[in-house]
Design a protein around this nucleic acid. Sequence first.
DNA 1: GGAACTATCCTTAGCCC
DNA 2: GGGGCTAAGGATAGTTC
Lengths: 204, 204
Amino acid sequence: MAPRRGRVEMRRIEDRTSRQVRFSKRRSGLFKKAFELAVLCDAEVALLVFSPGGKLYEFSSVSSLESTLDRYETFMNAENVVRKLDDNGQNHDEEFALLEANSKLLEIGKRLVETNLAEMNAEELGKLEEDLCHALKWARSRKNQLMTSSLNRPQKEVVVPTTTTTTSITEAERCTDGSNDTAAEGERVWGRPPSRAALGDVDT
Amino acid sequence: MAPRRGRVEMRRIEDRTSRQVRFSKRRSGLFKKAFELAVLCDAEVALLVFSPGGKLYEFSSVSSLESTLDRYETFMNAENVVRKLDDNGQNHDEEFALLEANSKLLEIGKRLVETNLAEMNAEELGKLEEDLCHALKWARSRKNQLMTSSLNRPQKEVVVPTTTTTTSITEAERCTDGSNDTAAEGERVWGRPPSRAALGDVDT
DNA sequence: GGAACTATCCTTAGCCC
DNA sequence: GGGGCTAAGGATAGTTC
């Protein structure tokens, strides 16, 4: 990779300008590779890079980056649901969570009706935002739960009704969700969206 | 770069197995590059790849990929706010939007209080989810608007108060999980959103 | 058993001193 | 233009589900 004499030190480049230059070059290289991977191998690729200066660079192999992010969220969501479901047969646990979620939802609803956006300051808005996010999470996980359990669930693999239903999700599914584990590099399977007919497509 | 005879054809590889093998190799190469870019140049990188078979591969230079996705969402949001603001003059336009958002919020609130999660089917939940998502977007963009305009806004550049340390934002901004923004990478300024720096590259 | 994916060996193309 | 190095292709033999 680095055509330097001998070894390459894999640590932050100290010199500011040099770092900036290398950033540009490597970034172009990376984007090119990403593009090639997508085209040659028919993969769906999304790439986000924030420069050290905070500038955003993005690449997406499909029409919109958001659609790949949606796919990702959906993927993760499905995975979580599965994990929860075969973690145990603790259904009462589940029911309890449902009740709790419901009461929180109600609470948030009450606050919403007496909300006046124009009079709120940033802090209040922040709180509101947080609450909405929670509500969203509950609704979402409940939905996933339903969708999953309504299917004949074989043994371990959630074969989500490929594609078909996916479309109805896209718009709402996004908006950041919770739950994350793993950092770098993971791999998981989820069903088998027929090659390239899922949501995104629209090949460049 | 491709050691093929002569030129590389930039189109989908037809042979299935060959495509698969190349996918693996190129993917590893890409991930490696992404890693190097992040480390050497101190950039925040997020990479999502779906194999043609639907398997997910992810890379993130920080602890959680979600956090980068959040950054992205926030960034985009801010950019939109800016665009709206210096579409400018048209403040009444803005006010109108605010009013409208408020009424929608109220509507959603009403529905929320009479919601019973346990009795909803997937479809209804989907609708609820969508509404919540919209509400969230409004709240969020309103907040961004406030935060932006409350600063001395020079001419075109929104220097948001460095979400980094001061963090009036961080907390709620990522409803994801809060707990890990300081990641392990050091200074991330996210100053200047509004710059044309999106998906250039992709030449070939 | 088969499909998707990975690893290994060997070779070549492209880069940068 | 050659030396050193990396990315990547061909082929093929594992590995996992």
